[in-house]
Amino acid sequence: MRQLQRRTFTVILAGAGLAAAWSPLARAQAAGKKLVIGFAQTGAESEWRTANTESVKAAAKAAGHELKFSDAQQKQENQIKAIRSFITQKVDVIILAPLVTTGWDTVLKEAKAAKIPVILESRNVVVKDTSTWTTFIGSDFVEEGRRAAQWLLDNTKNTTGTVNIVELQGTVGSDPAIDRKKGFDEVLKGNARYKVIRSQTGDFTRAKGKEVMEAFLKAEGKKINVLYAHNDDMAIGAIQAIEEAGLKPGKDILVIGVAAVKGAFEAMIAGKMNVSVECNPLLGPQLMEAAAKAAAGQTLPRWIKTIEGVFPAEVAAKEFPNRKY
Score class of each variant (00 low, 15 high):
residue 12 I to W: 13
residue 75 K to T: 02
residue 302 R to V: 09
residue 171 T to K: 03
residue 22 W to R: 13
residue 61 K to G: 15
residue 265 F to W: 02
residue 278 E to P: 11
residue 303 W to C: 00
residue 215 A to H: 02
residue 292 A to M: 09
residue 207 A to W: 01
residue 191 N to E: 08
residue 211 E to T: 13
residue 66 E to I: 11
residue 277 V to D: 02
residue 3 Q to L: 14
residue 64 G to R: 05
residue 60 A to E: 05
residue 20 A to H: 09
residue 307 I to V: 13
residue 287 L to W: 03
residue 174 S to P: 08
residue 200 Q to I: 00
residue 230 H to M: 09
residue 270 A to Q: 11
residue 134 T to Q: 14
residue 45 E to W: 10
residue 172 V to Q: 13
residue 110 E to V: 11
residue 12 I to C: 01
residue 165 I to E: 08
residue 165 I to D: 05
residue 236 I to A: 08
residue 301 P to K: 00
residue 304 I to S: 01
residue 210 K to V: 02
residue 92 D to M: 08
residue 12 I to N: 09
residue 185 D to M: 03
residue 2 R to N: 11
residue 207 A to K: 10
residue 33 K to R: 15
residue 19 A to V: 13
residue 123 R to H: 02
residue 257 G to R: 05
residue 91 V to I: 09
residue 96 L to T: 08
residue 315 V to G: 01
residue 141 F to E: 15
residue 254 L to V: 00
residue 196 V to D: 01
residue 183 G to F: 06
residue 145 G to V: 07
residue 276 S to M: 06
residue 77 E to L: 07
residue 262 K to A: 15
residue 45 E to F: 12
residue 75 K to Q: 13
residue 52 N to R: 14
residue 289 E to K: 03
residue 62 A to M: 06
residue 250 G to W: 14
residue 125 V to R: 01
residue 175 D to S: 03
residue 325 Y to I: 02
residue 197 I to F: 04
residue 166 V to I: 10
residue 158 N to H: 04
residue 221 G to R: 00
residue 118 V to S: 08
residue 152 L to I: 08
residue 111 A to M: 09
residue 29 Q to C: 04
residue 145 G to T: 10
residue 27 R to Q: 15
residue 147 R to Q: 15
residue 182 K to C: 00
residue 121 E to W: 02
residue 293 K to Q: 12
residue 105 D to C: 05
residue 117 P to T: 03
residue 219 A to K: 06
residue 221 G to I: 00
residue 281 P to S: 05
residue 68 K to F: 05
residue 302 R to K: 15
residue 234 M to W: 06
residue 51 A to C: 12
residue 149 A to D: 07
residue 172 V to L: 12
residue 52 N to P: 00
residue 294 A to Q: 06
residue 111 A to E: 14
residue 122 S to A: 10
residue 216 F to C: 08
residue 74 Q to I: 15
residue 276 S to A: 12
residue 245 A to M: 02
residue 210 K to I: 02
residue 96 L to H: 04
residue 226 V to R: 02
residue 56 V to G: 10
residue 69 F to D: 03
residue 166 V to C: 13
residue 196 V to E: 00
residue 78 N to F: 06
residue 3 Q to K: 14
residue 97 A to W: 03
residue 283 L to S: 07
residue 295 A to I: 02
